[in-house]
């Protein structure tokens, strides 16, 4: 029964009193877990440095293909959401601006969109120039 109740709680957390904060809360949690999973893979790749430069270069070459560079856009998006929403939480927790939390959320999401457009353009430009092409 306990397990079922917890699943109901997960659903209820999201649907009861649904508002802007609910979306922010869920996305912060999901991006946090994704970042932990990414970090474990990152530690595995970078940790190969302890076995010397040959192992490190082999491991790094595998994750520096155009495919992985394009995935980096998603990675930076996940990091930036968690970061900017975290800053919003710090502002809410540590200053008197908690009443502005919804406005802050949408201002920060607009900043995220602008930042991600810039990031995507830069990474795609790098990937294309390395492949001998150009965005223009």
């Amino acid at each position: 029964m306990r397990k079922k109740n917890q699943l109901v709680k997960l659903y209820d957390d999201f649907t009861l009193n649904f508002n802007t904060g609910t979306i922010a809360w869920l996305l912060h949690r999901v991006t946090g877990v994704l970042l932990l999973v990414y970090f474990l893979m990152h530690a595995f790749v970078i940790g190969s440095a302890v076995h010397g430069h040959v192992n490190f270069d082999t491991a790094l070459a595998k994750v520096q293909t155009p495919f992985f560079h394009i995935l980096e856009i998603g990675l930076i998006g996940v990091i930036f959401f968690h970061l900017i929403n975290g800053v919003r939480l710090l502002i809410i927790d540590l200053t008197g601006l908690s009443k502005a939390h919804k406005v802050l959320f949408w201002i920060f999401m607009a900043a995220l969109v602008v930042f991600m457009a810039y990031t995507a353009r830069m990474i795609l430009t790098n990937v294309l120039s390395e492949a001998g092409g150009s965005l223009k």
Binding site: F56, D57, L60, A61, Q64, I76, I79, L83, G86, E130
Partner: peptide, 27 residues
Amino acid sequence: TALLLVYFLGMHIVILHFIRKGTITFA
């Protein structure tokens, strides 16, 4: 740590993803 990471992770990404030139190697 959140506040520290805003700076440290921000710098880490700028150095390794934004001002990257060519393939990253041990050297």
